[in-house]
C-alpha cells in the first residue's frame, strides 16, 4: 500500500471540494474493495477522503412512490429494510447472496456499485492488464477464463462485474444520483452507469471526474414474483458463476438481468418480450463470445431461466 494522506469529510460539499483539491484523491466508505486493491497497489490513491460521516445513510420514500437509498446505506441495512424486503425482494435477495455478513455490514450502496470488475489477472500485478496499465495487453484472453465474461467483451478485456446488488438494481431500472464538484446533480439510469470495456477497460463507469454518488433511486414497486438465482460452485461466499435477477409479472412482461456474464449487469429488454425461456435465453445471449472454459454459461443460462419460468408458473 502506497503512503497516502487521510482526511474525514463531514458534508458532501466538503468531500467534493477535498476531491477537487487533490489530484490523486479517492473517496473511501466501506473500503472493502478499495483497501483490498490498495494492499496490492492496484489502486494507489495519494489521498483518501473518508465519506462515512456524510449522513447519506437514509432510505426515504420518493414522491413518485419509490425509494431513495442513500449512498452510504450499508448492504446489510438495505437488504433488511422492511420496504425493500416487501416491495423489492429481488434487491434484498441479491444483496443477501453477495459476499459475507461481515462484508455486507461494511460495504455501502455506492461502494457496491463502484467496486472494480473481477479477474484474477487484474489482481496479479506481475501480469499484463489493460485495466491496470492501459495498453499493456490482456492476460486473461487465452488464459483462465472460466469465470469471465461472454457478453459485451472486447479484445482489451473480458472481466466481469462482481456485484449482485447492481444486477437487481438493473432489473428494477434504478437511477444513480450524483453530485459534481460544482454542485450540479444528475440522475444516471443504471443501464448507463456501468460501461462495457471497449478499448478503455480502465474506465468502468460513466461518472465524471470528481462526481460523487449520493443515492440510488428505485422507481415505484413493480409487484410480481421476485427471484434472484445465483449459481456458484461453493454454496456461499463466492462470486456468481452466473446470476439471474428476475421479476415475473402476471402480465407476462417479465424482466431479467444477469450477473457473471459481462463487464456490467447484463439486461436485454428486447428479449423480455419472448414467451419461452429458450427464446429469452437466445435473445439475451445474441453475440456471445465464449471460450471452451466458459461456454457452459450459455446452456446454463437457458436452464436457469427455464427453472425460473417453472417456479413462476408453480407459484401463479
Amino acid at each position: 500500500m502506497k503512503a497516502f494522506t487521510y482526511e474525514r469529510a463531514n458534508t458532501p460539499a466538503a468531500a467534493a471540494m477535498a476531491l477537487a483539491a487533490q489530484p490523486d484523491a479517492k473517496f473511501i466508505a466501506g473500503g472493502t474493495n478499495l483497501l483490498d486493491l490498495m494492499k496490492l497497489q492496484i489502486e494507489t490513491p495519494a489521498h483518501l477522503i473518508d465519506v462515512n460521516r456524510l449522513g447519506l445513510d437514509k432510505i426515504e420514500a420518493t414522491p413518485e412512490g419509490g425509494l431513495r437509498i442513500g449512498a452510504l446505506v450499508r448492504n446489510t441495512d438495505l437488504a433488511a429494510d422492511a420496504r425493500i424486503r416487501r416491495d423489492y425482494a429481488v434487491l434484498s435477495r441479491a444483496l443477501l447472496s453477495g459476499a459475507s455478513a461481515q462484508l455486507r455490514n461494511k460495504a455501502t450502496t455506492a461502494g457496491n456499485l463502484l467496486q472494480r470488475t473481477r479477474c484474477p489477472y487484474f489482481y496479479d500485478t506481475t501480469k499484463p492488464c489493460n485495466k491496470r496499465a492501459p495498453g499493456a495487453g490482456c492476460a486473461a484472453v487465452g488464459g483462465f477464463t472460466r469465470n469471465l465474461a461472454i457478453m459485451g467483451t472486447s479484445e482489451a478485456c473480458i472481466a466481469t462485474h462482481p456485484s449482485d446488488m447492481a444486477v437487481a438494481m438493473r432489473v428494477l431500472d434504478a437511477l444513480v444520483e450524483t453530485v459534481a464538484p460544482d454542485g450540479t446533480t444528475r440522475a444516471i439510469p443504471i443501464a448507463e452507469f456501468h460501461r462495457l470495456p471497449g478499448d478503455t477497460p480502465h474506465v468502468e463507469t460513466t461518472l465524471r471526474a470528481g462526481e460523487m454518488v449520493t443515492a440510488v433511486t428505485l422507481p415505484p414497486p413493480l409487484g410480481g414474483l421476485h427471484i434472484y438465482r445465483k449459481v456458484r460452485d461453493r454454496t456461499s461466499y463466492a462470486f456468481a458463476t452466473l446470476s439471474v435477477a428476475a421479476v415475473m409479472l402476471p402480465s407476462g412482461r417479465n424482466r431479467f438481468a444477469f450477473g457473471g456474464l459481462a463487464h456490467k449487469p447484463w439486461r436485454v429488454e428486447e428479449a423480455e418480450k419472448k414467451e419461452t425461456p429458450a427464446a429469452v435465453a437466445e435473445a439475451v445471449l445474441a453475440g456471445a463470445r465464449t471460450t471452451p472454459q466458459n461456454a457452459f454459461k450459455v446452456p446454463l443460462l437457458g436452464r436457469v431461466l427455464a427453472s425460473i419460468f417453472a417456479q413462476a408458473k408453480a407459484s401463479a
Binding site: P120, Y123, D124, A139, G142, G143, F144, R146, T235, S236
Partner: peptide
C-alpha cells in the same frame, strides 16, 4: 489450483479464487 500454462503459475492464488468449503457446504 488452476495452472496458467503460458505464464507457468497458479492463477487463482487467494481464498477468493481458490475455493475451500464454507459452513454452508
Amino acid at each position: 489450483l488452476v495452472v496458467d500454462k503460458r505464464f507457468g503459475y497458479f492463477v487463482n492464488h487467494d481464498l477468493a479464487e481458490y475455493h475451500i468449503p464454507v459452513h454452508a457446504d
